[in-house]
Amino acid sequence: MNTTTTVLIVVAAILLLGLVLSVRIVKQYERGVVFRLGRVVGARDPGLRLLIPIIDVMRRVSLRIVTMPIQSQGIITRDNVSVDVSAVAYFRVVDAIKSVVAIENVHAAINQIAQTTLRKVVGRHTLDETLSETDKINEDIRTILDVTTVEWGVEVTLVELKDIQLPEAMKRAMAKQAEAEREKRAKIINAEGESLAAAALGAASDTMMDHPLALQLRNLQSLVEIGVDKNTTVVFPAPLMSTIGELGTFLTREAAASRRPAAEVAPTNGSDPPASLLPGVNRS
């Protein structure tokens, strides 16, 4: 009786141990690749799965998207400018069996091929293209990686350039170029403003010539603007051209008077003034 009980207990323990060893749980985001005596027998979907103890071996493969940073690479662009470019790649496993059988370490392989592809693609572009056409460069890198990794059961979903480091001398040169470009635009805008202002002033002057009262209204408006600050300045506006004409007439008269002989201007002592200076006397 004791021997039979012991045997039953041992058999039950062995069965229980075998059950424990045969039970596997595959999570929702995983797939299980089962090897039976070294050969692949298929992939297991999520849930509770039973294996043959010792004979079957299962490897779990995650199907979630993996974020892989691509370390900074020293690259020489097509126009011989040295830059340091870093990026980030997003990929996921779409075929669990290929990702296990076709390659030893899929993550390390994608990291290495992403670095070489980054150097190759960026090296084909100039510095200006690298800075302005990042979307095109990202798409080119992703396409090249997809062609290579499809045999590994991996799909590259996205590649993005993360950082582009330029030499200090190049940064200063680009800053000077940008400053010169801004100054050029400012001068052009200023010249255009001067041209528009000159055209507006010309049109205003033509209007004032056609309508003399417009000038008087403008003078009154100027007086109103001056009197806003409650100052004591008194302004008497006058037409500019008439003032200049009167000033010219005055200077001409004074010059003619200064050229007269002294005898005609001042009489001698004790004598009468010359007849030419008396009013109403005919000088002829």
Rank of each mutant, 00 (worst) to 15 (best):
L247C: 05
V41M: 05
G18E: 07
K120N: 15
I113G: 05
V156M: 14
S258R: 14
Q216M: 05
L247P: 02
I14K: 01
I164H: 00
S242K: 15
R59F: 04
N80A: 11
R59T: 09
E225I: 07
E30L: 01
L240Y: 06
L161I: 15
D272Q: 08
E192C: 01
V10E: 11
R78Y: 15
G47W: 00
V93F: 01
A203I: 09
T148D: 15
M68E: 15
V57D: 01
R44T: 08
I141K: 02
A262F: 12
P237N: 13
A109E: 10
S195V: 10
A197F: 04
V93L: 01
A257I: 06
L278D: 07
F236W: 08
G47K: 04
R260I: 07
A199W: 03
T157E: 15
Q112G: 10
L220D: 07
L217E: 07
E179M: 13
E168T: 06
L251A: 13
S271N: 12
A13M: 06
T134N: 04
I76N: 10
S72M: 13
T207I: 07
V281C: 05
S62M: 08
R64S: 11
G18K: 05
T157S: 13
V101S: 07
N282C: 03
L220H: 13
L21F: 00
P261T: 12
Y29W: 06
W152Y: 15
G123W: 06
S22E: 05
I52W: 06
D140W: 05
Y29C: 05
V150N: 04
R44W: 04
R142L: 06
G193I: 09
L17K: 03
A238R: 07
E139Y: 08
Q177A: 15
D210A: 11
W152M: 03
L201D: 10
R24I: 00
R36P: 08
K98R: 14
I189V: 12
S258M: 03
G38I: 03
R182K: 15
T243Y: 10
K98A: 12
V281D: 02
A178M: 10
A198G: 05
